[in-house]
């Protein structure tokens, strides 16, 4: 008898919880984003302010760039999330597959304040920016590094680490050095080949990059500025170089509304709030990434640092923005060439 009562109670509890879940999800705005610090920061700074202003709760779906893309593809037309954060060139893949809705700029008045470079398309706008630049540990590398071209110095042989999951940064820099760019990148092929012997390791994830720096296995890196600042916070003395010969390669993370979202209005409100100068100022402090709203307050210790662009002139002079389409289309070919010519022994 007791067992039957227990089972009945358990079934009732299960039914109640199942009934509650969709109701909660129905009210909430669902945001897709990377896990860890990215999700925590967006939740703390944008999500809470959004809920306080609108009364709409926010739920988060976290995952890697491609996991989330794959899920979005499977749920095409009836998306499981309403708003998506991803890197600008990956957003091109969403757009090409019809996974994003066009943004209604009338519902995002703060978009008028943001820098021109952050409006990536009719479908997606930047949320923050950073650069891939040269980062090194002065305790392990005695000479000062000030330029991209220093990477080619024989003294740095066997000390450099760089990403192999996306070699577009170093490919573009080599092309720029040889008078080309990301479109006619082949101009930099010979220059890149000269770098082959200098590379100690290639990394596939941000975590690997930071581990290589911490352990000293890759004390000079082509590295994401945000990760470098994160290492500094952890007490690892790394120097983030503001290269004097060619600018850092800009990365822009973006926001977009999923096609078919039933919370499109709320998603637009979320984006609008994220672009406000107040929220942008908070994001700069938390992520140490560059604001897309030049009106955002940048702490004195971050002003002028690599990846932190305060003015339109800084965006232009200290960052090189690749063409999103060219990058998305060339990436597979770049990876293939890079693996065959630089990574391979």
């Amino acid at each position: 008898m007791r067992a039957r009562f227990g089972l009945t109670a358990l079934a009732a509890l299960l039914a109640a919880s199942l009934a509650a879940t969709p109701a909660q999800a129905q009210n909430a705005l669902v945001v897709s984003i990377w896990g860890g610090n990215w999700k925590d920061t967006v939740e703390r700074i944008i999500g809470k302010a959004f809920t306080a202003r609108t009364g709409i709760p926010v739920e988060y779906e976290v995952g890697g760039t491609i996991d989330r893309l794959a899920k979005a593809r499977v749920a095409k037309g009836n998306p499981l999330v309403d708003l998506n954060f991803t890197t600008t060139h990956v957003a091109r893949l969403y757009i090409s597959d019809g996974l994003y809705d066009k943004l209604d700029m009338a519902k995002i008045p703060n978009a008028k304040e943001i820098t021109r470079e952050a409006v990536r398309s009719d479908y997606h706008v930047g949320s923050w920016a950073y650069v891939y630049t040269v980062v090194y540990r002065p305790d392990l590398v005695k000479e000062e590094i000030t330029r991209w071209s220093d990477l080619w110095k024989p003294s740095l042989k066997g000390k450099i680490a760089m990403p192999d999951f996306d070699p577009s940064h170093i490919i573009t820099i080599a092309a720029l050095m040889e008078g080309g760019n990301e479109v006619n990148w082949q101009k930099g092929e010979a220059k890149l080949r000269q770098l082959k012997e200098s590379v100690a390791a290639f990394y596939s994830t941000d975590a690997q990059s930071q581990d290589l720096m911490k352990t000293g296995q890759g004390p000079v890196q082509v590295m994401l500025s945000v990760n470098a600042y994160h290492l500094q916070e952890q007490g690892i003395a790394v120097k983030v170089v503001q290269p004097t010969d060619y600018p850092g390669i800009v990365g822009i993370d973006t926001m977009a509304v999923m096609a078919g979202s039933k919370k499109a209005d709320a998603a637009h409100q979320f984006i609008n709030l994220a672009l406000s100068k107040e929220i942008q100022g908070e994001l700069v402090k938390a992520l140490r990434a560059g604001p897309v709203n030049p009106g955002a307050a940048v702490p004195a210790n971050l002003k002028g640092q690599p990846g932190i662009f305060g003015t339109a002139a800084e965006w232009k002079e200290r960052g090189y923005i690749m063409n999103d389409d060219a990058r998305a289309k060339n990436l597979p070919g770049w990876r293939e060439w890079f693996t065959a010519n630089i990574v391979k022994k």
Binding site: G64, I66, R335, V343
Partner: peptide
């Protein structure tokens, strides 16, 4: 993946690279 430093690639690493980094799922 961790001990090869990107220089030693075995089958599973290449599948991952093609699928997740190059977005080349057919490849």
């Amino acid at each position: 993946e961790m001990l090869g430093g990107g220089k030693v690639k075995m089958i599973a690493n290449v599948v991952r690279d093609l699928g997740l980094d190059s977005f080349n799922w057919p490849g």
